[in-house]
Design a protein around this nucleic acid. Structure first.
Length: 737
DNA sequence: CTAGGATCATCAATT
DNA sequence: ATGATCCTAG
């Protein structure tokens, strides 16, 4: 097997260059995964033990794919450590975390768990959620963790500013509570690993000796903590290869720091830089469009992708009257193209927000088109799935109050708020975990039913725990369902029958997933322990489930689409305020808009052959009818690359296209549920600049500006609460004196 | 204590 | 529009 066949000179150089720091600037579709895989294979062929190679990826899916490709290439040489940052850290921490005073059986808390913890903190400190929303506090803390600032450090810096001091207090209390529950949140996984290496140089050295060659994919999306971790691990051997594209950095809001890639050469002296600029994925047209957009960003490394692929077809820009019609066009186009021998799995619909998927789903169902939605409410976030998982978590780590409190009255067993409050008070007074309070039910006065209900619950827990230590996760799960009768509870408690059935189906799917997990573990010669299952479940992303096996249209956000490619891509909702979002438009700093533009670049470059962008003149958004103009990014795509179609009437197209489109129109002359549109009145509003108006929500305000927008007028009004914009005829603005 | 109705705020992207 | 929280009656 020659690893260098069919590689271009740049790719070949990257595969060959194995010693010392290497920065691979790899544009979209430039074959970087191939380079990474071949590079690892090259190392192994040179005699490096797979055991000594670490490859970090962004998603579990990417990790699996890479592992498979390496194993195929090397015919079954396992042992290369391929994982995401988070799973790498968990594996290290499971072995080493006792050095930081945590128990090795720590639980990983997701965003929902974190929120519950924080709500408890608010309660204990009597802090008003209105003054500082829980989400805002958690966000602020998360940003600090991203840059490895501890609660103590933050408290020192926060002196003076009241809001900051408040956050410092919350950060500290939140962290203590996590510790008491023997739990880590997502950010902690990274921070604690860095902390561990800081505190224990000999531990760090062990891992440095183990990971002699390290590569990091999607380096543009790493945050400071992750950068620091990589830096520490690679310091000794200095064999670090990072791959990234500053134009595809789309996780700034999550703390990703584009400087990591821009300053790599400074951080790792003597670094070699190789650029991969040849694109193998898209047509010339698609690439030119993407380049046209991204070149409007100021902050970027200079480079331009090119391709030897064909020109391909023009990009279609479809302007629909309504969001409903937009969905109709997209789905009908998919149906008609699929009829011409294309597979459903060759189509993707990409949107900015998960909420946009609904209309497309409705339409796909109606046309009997198989599809899969990624993202949105994750499977593991479903209420019923979380309930069952909470049992598993509580059995595994009895210190995990959050999980224990979640299940104490699920299914209903007559332990309500009152009882929980008593237990809590006891736990606080005796300074013991909540679980101990449950077990000490006989010492607590004032429990309803003489503590009988709590007693039963504590006995149930003990019974389940007996098995939990030794049995495989599948049996533990079956046992929980049997002893609690949870499924039955779902069926009786839920008033909505379809909903109940769906919930039961989800629980069943969870047991199926556990079974599948057990099968895989046994195949690998491992045990399907509770610990391993919980870990897997905590760190999966929805996109990890994406598979090309299923012939189904893929629906996902542009963020989720990163790293994927499709023959035909529809980028929908291509409008101001949708994409770029209002937040980015009104943001004071241009950075947010630049990130939106990079997201646009990512979205456009997902397409191999055909690219569609669609916009609607009007749509329902947060339960309001809004009128948006086409996205500014549309103007950044060179006009000659596009074919514009408005409301079912091709501006320039052949007969074949017309046939398709009349089909679209038919769907709309007799829609099953006619779109309810307000009748836009015409004419200017009955007030002018300088007048005062009244608005339901914001009260009295002064009109600053009125300008035509489609059939209506956009009115800018200054209220006490700030400057807001409205569509004149939709927003019930009344002139007042 | 629980169930069910009323009221209220919220509304990006994710490991 | 939806989901979370609050409130009242059994």
């Amino acid at each position: 097997m020659n690893l260098f066949d069919n590689l271009n000179p740049m790719q070949r150089e990257a595969v060959e260059y194995t010693e010392g720091p290497l920065l691979l600037l790899a544009g979209a579709g430039s074959g970087k995964t191939r380079v990474l895989v071949n590079r690892v294979a090259n190392l192994v062929q040179k005699g490096v033990r797979p055991f000594n190679i670490l490859a970090i990826t962004f998603t579990n899916k990417a990790a699996c794919e890479m592992k498979e490709r390496i194993e195929t290439l090397l015919e079954g040489t396992g042992g290369v450590w391929v994982s995401t940052f988070h799973s790498l850290c968990v594996r290290i921490l499971r072995r080493e975390i006792s050095k930081l005073g945590y128990d090795a059986k720590f639980t990983i808390y997701d965003a929902d768990d974190s929120q519950r913890i924080m709500k408890q903190v608010y309660k204990e400190h009597n802090i008003n959620e209105k003054l500082l929303p829980v989400k805002a506090a958690l966000g602020a803390i998360s940003r600090q963790k991203d840059i490895l600032v501890t609660a103590e450090q933050f408290a020192r810096e926060a002196e003076g500013d009241y809001q900051q001091r408040q956050i410092a207090l919350l950060y500290d209390a939140y962290q203590r509570k996590l510790k008491a529950n023997n739990a880590l949140d997502f950010d902690d996984l990274i921070c604690k690993t860095v902390e561990l290496f800081d505190k224990s140089p000999e531990t760090l050295e062990r891992y440095q000796n183990r990971f002699i060659y390290i590569s990091v994919d999607e380096y543009q999306d790493t945050n400071f903590g992750q950068y620091r971790l990589v830096w520490m691990l690679s310091r000794k051997n200095n064999n670090i290869c990072v791959v990234g594209d500053d134009d595809q950095s789309i996780y700034g809001w999550r703390g990703a720091d584009i400087r990591n890639i821009l300053e790599f050469e400074r951080d790792f002296p003597g670094a070699k830089v190789i650029k991969l600029e040849q694109n193998y994925r898209s047509t010339k047209t698609i690439l030119a469009a993407a380049n046209g957009v991204i070149q409007n960003n100021v902050k970027r490394k200079d480079k331009e992708l090119w391709t030897e692929n064909t020109e391909g077809s023009l990009i279609t820009h479809y302007t629909a009257e309504t969001d409903l019609e937009e969905a109709g066009y997209v789905v009908d186009e998919i149906v008609s193209r699929a009829a011409k021998a294309e597979k459903y799995k060759d189509f993707a619909i990409l949107y900015r927000m998960n909420a946009q998927s609904r209309l497309f789903e409705d339409r796909l169902v109606r046309e009997n088109v198989p599809y899969r939605v990624f993202g949105g409410v994750r499977f593991y976030d479903r209420m019923e799935v979380k309930d069952v998982l909470a049992y598993l978590k509580a059995l595994y780590n009895p210190l995990d109050d959050i999980s224990l409190r979640r299940i104490i009255n699920v299914p209903r067993r007559g332990i309500g708020e009152e009882s929980v409050a008593r237990l809590e008070a006891y736990a606080a007074e005796m300074e013991v975990p909540f679980y101990d309070a449950v077990c000490s039910w006989d010492e607590i006065t004032g429990l309803p039913y003489n503590g009988r209900r709590v007693k039963d619950f504590s006995e149930l827990l003990k019974l389940l725990m007996e098995d939990a230590a030794t049995r495989p996760v599948t049996e533990i799960l079956d046992n929980i369902l049997k002893e609690t009768n949870y499924v039955n509870e779902l069926l009786t408690a839920e008033t909505d029958h379809d909903m109940a059935k769906e919930r039961v189906a989800n629980v069943m799917e969870l047991t199926a997933k556990a079974a599948e997990f057990k099968r895989q573990a046994e195949e690998a010669g491992e045990e399907a322990t509770l610990a391993a299952f919980l870990e897997e479940v905590a760190l999966v992303a929805d996109i990890d489930a994406y598979s090309e096996q299923q012939d189904a249209v893929a629906l996902m956000t542009m963020h989720s689409a990163k790293g994927l490619e499709f023959d035909n891509v529809f980028v929908v909702g291509f409008e101001e305020h949708m994409f770029p979002t209002s937040r980015a438009i009104f943001s004071a700093s241009p950075a947010q808009l630049e990130e939106e533009r990079r997201l646009c670049y990512v979205a456009l470059t997902r397409a191999r052959k055909r690219l569609y962008v669609t916009s609607a003149v009007t749509r329902r958004f947060y339960n309001e009818q809004v009128y948006n103009s086409p996205s500014r990014f549309l103007k950044e795509i060179p006009k000659e690359l596009m074919r514009a179609i408005k409301s079912g009437r091709p501006v320039s197209a052949g007969a074949e296209r017309k046939a398709t489109l009349s089909h679209v129109q038919d769907g709309y002359t007799k829609p099953r549920t006619p779109p309810v549109l307000p009748k836009p009145k015409t004419g200017p509003p009955d007030f002018s600049v300088g007048n005062y108006v009244n608005q339901k929500k914001y009260g009295r305000g002064k009109v600053l500006d009125i300008k035509p927008a489609g059939a209506d007028y956009e009115v800018t009004v200054e209220f006490a609460a700030g400057v807001k914009k409205f569509m004149a005829h939709l927003s019930n603005l009344e002139r007042v004196e």
